[in-house]
Amino acid sequence: MGGIEEFMVRTNPGVDPHLSVWEWQIPIYLFLGGLAAGMMVIGAWQELWGRGRWESRLSVLGALAALGALSVGMLALLLDLENPQYVYRFYLAFQPTSPMSWGAWILLLAYPALALWALISVNGDALESWICRFAFLSPLRTLRRAAAGWSTAIRLVVLVVGGALGVYTGILLQTLVARPLWNSGLLGPLFLASGVSGGAALYMLFRGDRSTLSVLLKWDVGALVLEALLLGLLLLEKMSGTPLDRLAAATLIGGPYTGTFFGLVLVGGIAVPLLMEALELRNPQRHALFAPALVLVGGFSLRAVLVLAGLATGFQMVANA
């Protein structure tokens, strides 16, 4: 038997010749959401159980950066919606089978958790000076006093919500079974690992002292190693899977996204910064910003490649392979 060739009279925009309904907005959100998740996980973990020094200044900066990242990311999501005026519909329903619905509610939890985390981590004097300048902030003083007794619980919530935020985007893609590149349980952990590596990299850009930097380097090296392992397993799974899986893997290896995948994700985003940071572990340098910058570029590229390449994969590939 020979091949199968399909000819189809259909030209729906964004659907044909292959699905392309998601553009730059989704990778931007996945990247920024991942960054926020990584910063929440690292900061809360360090404060709860971390060994080594951790500056509370970093928690405040981390919480504020995560709030900013989430806000910009959600704006990108809003720009992606075809009917943005119905965005409130996400909060009139909870659909347990839809990871996107879970995500909407996780995002809603993340905001107060991050705000409280920033409030309990901020230096009391700094808060007072802000209150002196802006009197309307004075309720924060009472809120901080009340929240102080719940600091462990707040950090635990930040850790759990951060973990959920980091992992759900991968599960969201995984459950869309019509796109073979995404159908893997490895995607959730991969996105979390990538978020943690990006979160550590962003913390490094805040230039903590040398012992804090040493802690962050360990987080980043660990997350990058895990990310490389998970990506390797994902490729192995796809390359050894069904014909559809193999065609999906071919979009990354020998396909249109190969250059970006190898150049910006595997080499530039993982291998090079991993090597630099592993060497730097012996002697942390406060001004070594190149490796963290590469990690951030790699984190965004990973999302962009997986979203755009994955979207283009589908059952139509088998027919005309």
């Binding site: 998601w22 919606l81 839809s98 019509a178």
Partner: peptide
């Protein structure tokens, strides 16, 4: 809301915006 998750989930690409 036009999030298009359903379009990505459909193996028949039967939906459009």
């Amino acid at each position: 809301s036009g999030c298009k998750a359903c379009m990505a989930a459909c193996p028949y690409d039967a939906r459009y915006v």
